[in-house]
């Protein structure tokens, strides 16, 4: 569970101050599937960085699973990311010359999990993300975009995180592949009760979540339950 209270973020550039986030407060319960939506410049990326423990708020508190992480040092934040969070990026950010298995197990490498257990857990995560087993020993730059994003999803799952943060996960994919990725999120949310926060500027993408938080000019302008949730039909995994 995460809880943000009166979070502000101010960037100082000489004398000029930019208030990127103003008085943000909301709560996400375990098992929620939330979309944070807003146009570029709305502050949603900054918000994601704070939720993702990549950055600290200027003021306000951010409690992750009962622990206030808003005042932690860089290395303490790294440990929070390693143990409690999973990231999925628009540009996938896989290590190009490493195998799929190596990419997925990389968070466990930093957690100093022994190699055998790493491979087992990476396999579980890859199965959950729906990447066929015959791709596991391929180099990641030999995969298609959809397959790469599945590897990234598996990498985000492998440390069994409290929250999975997906930053424009469909931005680099065609519509059909993007839908398959969104379906994977829905399935993980329903079958494994994963907490997922999806950051996007597209209302269409946001509508796949249960709840949509709209951000504009650094403020939450709307926080609603998504009554018209788009449900993606269960395509076969082999389509990717």
């Amino acid at each position: 569970m995460i809880e943000l209270a009166n979070v502000e973020k101010i960037y100082k550039n000489g004398d000029a101050e930019t208030r990127v986030l103003k008085n943000i407060s909301f709560k996400v319960n375990d098992g929620d599937f939330v979309a944070i939506m807003g146009p570029s410049g709305s502050g949603k990326s900054t918000l994601m960085h704070i939720i993702g423990a990549l950055d600290r708020p200027t003021s306000g508190s951010y409690v992750l699973d009962g622990r206030d992480v808003s005042k932690l040092s860089d290395d303490e934040l790294a440990l929070v990311r390693r143990d409690r969070l999973g990231f999925i990026f628009q540009a996938f950010n896989l290590l190009p010359r490493a195998t799929v298995l190596r990419n997925v197990s990389l968070p466990l490498v930093y957690a100093e999990v022994p190699a055998e257990e790493r491979d087992r857990r990476a396999g579980d995560a890859l199965r959950a993300a729906g990447l066929p087993e015959d791709r596991w020993n391929h180099l990641s730059n030999q995969l298609s975009g959809g397959q790469m994003q599945r590897v990234a999803i598996a990498r985000a799952l492998v440390n069994n995180p409290a929250i999975i943060l997906a930053d424009e996960p469909t931005g680099n994919l065609d519509t059909k592949t993007g839908e398959l990725v969104l379906h994977t999120f829905q399935r993980l949310n329903q079958e494994q009760k994963r907490t997922i926060i999806l950051i996007t500027h597209e209302p269409y993408v946001a509508e796949h979540a249960d709840r949509i938080i709209s951000v504009r000019d650094g403020e939450i302008v709307e926080d609603k339950h998504n009554g018209n949730k788009r449900v993606v039909n269960d395509h076969s995994h082999a389509a990717i």
Binding site: D75, A78, L79, R81, R82, L106, P107, N159
Partner: peptide, 16 residues
């Protein structure tokens, strides 16, 4: 640089 960013995002500390 991007690779370093990714490694840090998924939990690498400075010393790593």
């Amino acid at each position: 640089t991007r690779e370093i960013g990714l490694r840090k995002a998924i939990g690498a500390e400075r010393k790593d």
